[in-house]
């Protein structure tokens, strides 16, 4: 098992990519804290992991709230005694914030996708630095590299912020043994509250591998970066996009 005896927090772990990451981490031996605003779905994922010989706990947390972050990390340390891995997976889509050019949409995207990752990275890195080791994986997007005419432009801005926040944190915390990397998924099947399936289908011919990705394909990349196999990898991007941004 590749995460034996590790303790991991996965934000946005109630569904989609976060759920796939939580389940894979548990299968690889980690105790997993599933954090999400969606309590019922998060509790269901946790119950399922615990019923299949895994170890997991649900904590309700809004990643844009500093108080929720303090409580989430405290609960994790209280229950499992340490924190080895943080996956900042929670995020909202640029098609989920109403008007595509609104300031409210911008503020909401930045609060969840950028500020949420800043809070988690900063608080977790301080905890990990005490132990002299740890791995943080921030889920950005191909929109952290390229723009898109669809959805709110704040989405790309927030994902670009994640990409460079990751590098800054990697340089800052590297000497203390904390690794920080970003993952950049391409087009996945429509997520909860995201764009509809029809829009997604249009992305297939534009993707070199000629298909959408699956959440498990992102989860394997996150697992690799979280694990000790990535012990010399920090401050960099893992692109999982079927070749989309190679174009």
């Amino acid at each position: 098992m590749r995460l034996k005896d590790k303790v991991a927090i996965v934000t946005g772990g109630a569904h989609g990519m976060g759920e796939a990451e939580a389940r894979l981490f548990a299968k690889e031996g980690a105790a997993v804290v599933v954090a999400d605003v969606l309590s019922d779905m998060g509790e269901a994922v946790v119950a399922d992991i615990n019923a299949s010989q895994g170890r997991a706990m649900f904590v309700r947390a809004d990643v844009s709230s500093e108080a929720d972050w303090h409580a989430l990390i405290a609960r994790t340390l209280e229950t499992y005694g340490k924190l080895d891995i943080l996956v900042n997976n929670a995020g909202i889509s640029g098609s989920a914030v109403g008007s595509e050019l609104s300031l409210e949409g911008w503020n909401r995207l930045m609060a969840v996708n950028a500020t949420g990752v800043f809070l988690g990275t900063t608080l977790a890195a301080q905890e990990m630095a005490k132990a002299g080791k740890g791995s943080i994986v921030n889920v950005s997007s191909i929109m952290g590299f390229v723009g898109s005419a669809e959805g709110h432009p704040g989405y790309a801005a927030s994902k670009g912020a994640v990409r460079l926040l990751t590098k800054a944190a990697a340089v800052r915390w590297g000497p203390q043994g904390v690794r920080v990397n970003s993952v950049h998924p391409g087009y996945m099947p429509a997520m909860l509250g995201g764009t509809n399936a029809g829009t997604r289908a249009a992305k297939i011919p534009m993707t070199p591998l000629r298909r959408l990705g699956e959440p498990i394909e992102v989860a394997y990349g996150v697992l690799f970066l979280a694990s000790d196999e990535a012990s010399f990898i920090t401050g960099t991007e893992l692109v999982i996009d079927g070749g989309y941004i190679a174009q």
Binding site: P208, E217, L238, G243, A246
Partner: peptide
């Protein structure tokens, strides 16, 4: 196969 959606990077 864990990298089945990764190419060109």
């Amino acid at each position: 196969d864990e990298a089945s959606y990764i190419t060109g990077t």
